[in-house]
């Protein structure tokens, strides 16, 4: 049997931890779902990747 008493403080601290945990889980789910929606819509996803690619170079340069 653990030799400690539950202070009212621990209840408040737990409520904070559980609350923040749920918020983080919800945020992860939200970003995932948003990603799925954006990818399905075919939005532009290519970012600059530190070297020129055909898709990110202006059209005139490609044709030269």
């Amino acid at each position: 049997m653990p030799m400690q008493t539950e202070h009212e403080l621990h209840r408040r601290r737990r409520s904070r931890n559980v609350g923040l945990g749920l918020v983080l889980v919800a945020f992860v789910a939200l970003v995932f779902a948003l990603t799925v929606v954006k990818v399905r819509q075919g939005d532009l996803m290519e970012a600059y990747d530190h070297q020129p690619r055909v898709s990110v170079v202006p059209q005139e340069e490609v044709s030269q």
């Binding site: 403080l9 209840r11 408040r12 601290r13 409520s15 904070r16 609350g19 923040l20």
Partner: peptide, 9 residues
């Protein structure tokens, strides 16, 4: 300095 619970935030 009482610690807040989640509802306070």
């Amino acid at each position: 300095t009482p610690e807040a619970e989640f509802g306070d935030y």
